[in-house]
Amino acid sequence: MANLHPNSGDPKVTYEYRRKKHAEEMRMQVITFTMMIFFTVIAFAAVGAGFSKWFIVPFVLLLAVVQVIFQLYYFMHMSHKGHEAPQLFMYSGVIVGFVTILAFVTIIWW
């Protein structure tokens, strides 16, 4: 279990450095969260305001996609290194799912 302590050097320094890094990351998370709330409010407001369907549908879908990217990359840490395989499989899942949905909204019509 030699890899339990990957941080070589002075443990005290690295510890404080890590604390600081975590705190910084946490601030990013809160900003992300604020933006997600903001997007959600806009999406609901757009529907509540009664814009045209042709504006609302692409607009709220775009907001949803952006929000989900935030979730995945910041809340679920997919932006960190060591997430190459998770990314590959999440994107593959998204592609398969997208093709499925595309088929169901285009070639099931009767």
């Binding site: 395989a85 593959s92 899942g93 998204v94």
Partner: peptide, 12 residues
């Protein structure tokens, strides 16, 4: 994570 990839397809 792989399970979540499968779940993505399930919900899709």
């Amino acid at each position: 994570w792989f399970f979540l990839g499968g779940e993505t397809v399930l919900f899709a």
